[in-house]
Amino acid sequence: MEEYRGDLVVIAAGYEREMRRFLAANSGLESRFPKRIAFPDYTDTELAEIFRHLAAAEGFTLAPDVPDRLRALLRTSSRGPSFGNGRLMRNLLDAAIARQAQRITAGDRPDDAEITTLRAADLRPVTPETRSKNVGLYL
């Protein structure tokens, strides 16, 4: 890093507490990372937009009832030191896609629009228990 410092950028990213421990683990590290940028958590509005964008990238549209359900889930999400931020949206989307697959295969033959639509009923809190139950259901 020192030899090429004019041509090299090294980014070390992670949770604040863990990054402090990382830099303290070796006496030479802290001085080699003189600039630190702390990014605030996304707002609920930003998280909802991330969810919409991720869903669209996967070929899904959101039913009109999804934004309200998503905001309700975000209001009850723990925002502790390991809050996943954007990763929470990916986990919610993965779980919603799995539930949507169960929903549309349990009933009558869905039309094309229903196959690519996520509904509020597909959104539920992601917990360790629900995550392990839904892994791979839509693959």
Rank of each mutant, 00 (worst) to 15 (best):
G107H: 06
Y42Q: 09
S82F: 15
A13P: 02
A95F: 05
G136F: 02
L54Q: 14
R119K: 13
S132R: 15
P67K: 07
E114S: 15
R103N: 07
F22E: 00
G136T: 02
G84Y: 03
G84F: 03
A25T: 08
G14P: 03
F51H: 03
R5V: 12
D122F: 01
P67C: 03
R52W: 07
I104K: 08
M89A: 08
T127M: 05
A113Q: 14
G14L: 01
E49A: 14
T61K: 10
R90I: 11
Q100Y: 04
L139H: 13
L47I: 04
S31V: 13
E30W: 02
L74P: 01
A56M: 09
R69W: 07
L47E: 02
A55K: 08
I115K: 15
R131W: 04
G136L: 02
S78E: 14
R99T: 00
E16A: 12
I11S: 01
K133L: 15
P34T: 11
S82I: 07
G59R: 08
V135P: 00
L73A: 01
G136Y: 05
T76S: 14
V126C: 02
L29K: 06
T105M: 12
E58T: 05
T45L: 08
G80Q: 08
A113F: 09
M19Q: 03
Y4M: 12
I115V: 14
G86N: 10
P67I: 04
L23F: 01
A13C: 13
R87D: 02
G107N: 09
G59E: 09
P128V: 11
G6C: 07
R103Q: 07
D7E: 11
I97P: 02
D44K: 11
P64R: 13
L123E: 01
A98V: 03
Q102T: 04
A63H: 15
D41L: 13
Q102K: 11
G136W: 06
R17E: 13
R119A: 05
A48P: 03
T116K: 09
N26H: 14
V66T: 10
D65S: 07
R103G: 04
S27L: 10
L47P: 08
G136A: 02
Q100W: 08
R32H: 11
M1C: 08
A48L: 08
P34W: 12
A121Q: 10
P34K: 14
D108C: 06
R103F: 04
N85I: 05
R52E: 15
N91H: 13
E16M: 06
D41T: 02
G28D: 10
L62G: 01
G86P: 03
D94P: 03
I11D: 00
R69C: 07
R36E: 11
G14F: 01
I115N: 04
P81G: 04
A12E: 00
T127W: 06
M89K: 07
I50E: 04
A12H: 00
T76N: 10
A25G: 12
A106R: 15
R99E: 00
E18G: 10
G14C: 04
F22S: 00
Y42A: 08
A95M: 05
R36L: 10
P110C: 00
G59S: 07
A98H: 00
S77C: 09
R36A: 13
D44L: 07
V10W: 06
K133V: 06
D65R: 10
D108A: 15
G6T: 09
D108H: 06
V126W: 00
H53T: 14
A101I: 02
R32W: 10
V66Y: 05
Y138R: 12
N26A: 11
D122I: 01
G14D: 01
